[in-house]
């Protein structure tokens, strides 16, 4: 009786909440379950390509895609394209993060800065960043600068919103403790405010990277350039122009894998920080 009546305010162990267990599939651990499902999907995919008689120009099978990825890595083209995309993304992220830092600092310092941030984010955040690509091309030409500009715009707003929310909602007691133990100025920001707002900061960076990643691929596809200096979007476009369908798939798989990897990096960071500290539940 007493145990089952544990109020919801208890520690979020979930121990009291018995998970309905079923036999067979649901009884297996997560990793083999996902692996089996992945194998099944690959099997169905390969089976479809082998048996349906679909033109290999339309759909490539997993074996061909794997071969294309291998070839792309072996001759360095896929790696080079990935490196270029990541490099542009990184530039945009760094600038976006710096801008977000400046904006949120201004917002926490002055009423005017706060109003400015609210106005800018409410205007620019709902705008899909890719929509400003035509303007970016007009201003900066078909250059990396235009891409970086678009990526910056894609990442700065989600980061700024999350970080400023994080700063604004920091528990006032912990800030009072910071001042009480003698912290002032930059030190209280670095040692108390930032760690206390870390769940939102990480959430903002996570959203920023996800937005940036989608935007750069879209931008590269729209950019439509050819040749040796392109990123993954160019890689896909180029493969499509020359009917190398397995390479189109290889590019897509690479994009998906990097997206997953970015997500894993953030999950790992969260595990080691805010989840470990009990500031965010799993």
């Amino acid at each position: 009786m007493q145990q089952t009546a544990t109020p919801a305010t208890g520690p979020p162990d979930g121990a009291a909440r018995a998970r309905p267990r079923r036999g067979g599939w649901a009884a297996l651990p997560v990793a083999p379950r996902r692996a089996a499902l992945l194998l099944l999907i690959l099997g169905v995919w390969q089976g479809y390509v082998s048996l349906s008689g679909v033109s290999p120009l339309l759909v490539s099978g997993p074996a061909d895609v794997a071969a294309a990825i291998y070839a792309g890595i072996a001759d360095g083209r896929l790696l080079a394209a990935t490196a270029i995309t990541l490099q542009v993304l990184l530039s945009g992220m760094v600038i976006g993060m710096a801008l977000a830092a400046v904006l949120t600092t201004l917002a926490s310092w002055s009423r005017l800065g706060d109003d400015l941030l609210v106005l800018l984010t409410s205007m620019l955040n709902p705008l899909p960043a890719i929509a400003i690509l035509p303007l970016a091309i007009l201003w900066f030409g078909l250059s990396t600068t235009a891409l970086v500009f678009v990526i910056t715009n894609a990442v700065v707003w989600p980061i700024a919103i999350n970080v400023s929310t994080g700063f604004r909602t920091v528990n006032p007691t912990i800030m009072a403790v910071g001042r009480n133990i003698g912290l002032r100025g930059w030190r209280i920001v670095r040692d108390v405010l930032i760690p206390a707002a870390l769940p939102q900061i990480i959430a903002g960076l996570k959203t920023g990277w996800a937005f940036g990643w989608r935007t750069i691929i879209a931008a590269e596809l729209v950019f439509g350039a050819a040749g040796g200096q392109g990123g993954l979007g160019f890689f896909i476009n180029d493969a499509r122009y020359f009917l190398r369908t397995p390479e189109v798939f290889a590019g897509l798989v690479t994009i998906a894998l990097i997206g997953i990897a970015l997500d894993l990096v953030f999950t790992w960071i969260e595990r080691r920080t805010v989840i470990r500290w009990g500031m965010k539940s799993t």
Partner: peptide, 15 residues
Amino acid sequence: DRAVVFQEFDQLFPW
């Protein structure tokens, strides 16, 4: 020199 103990449980640095 005037260290404070607050009522709130979340006065510790969780990190």
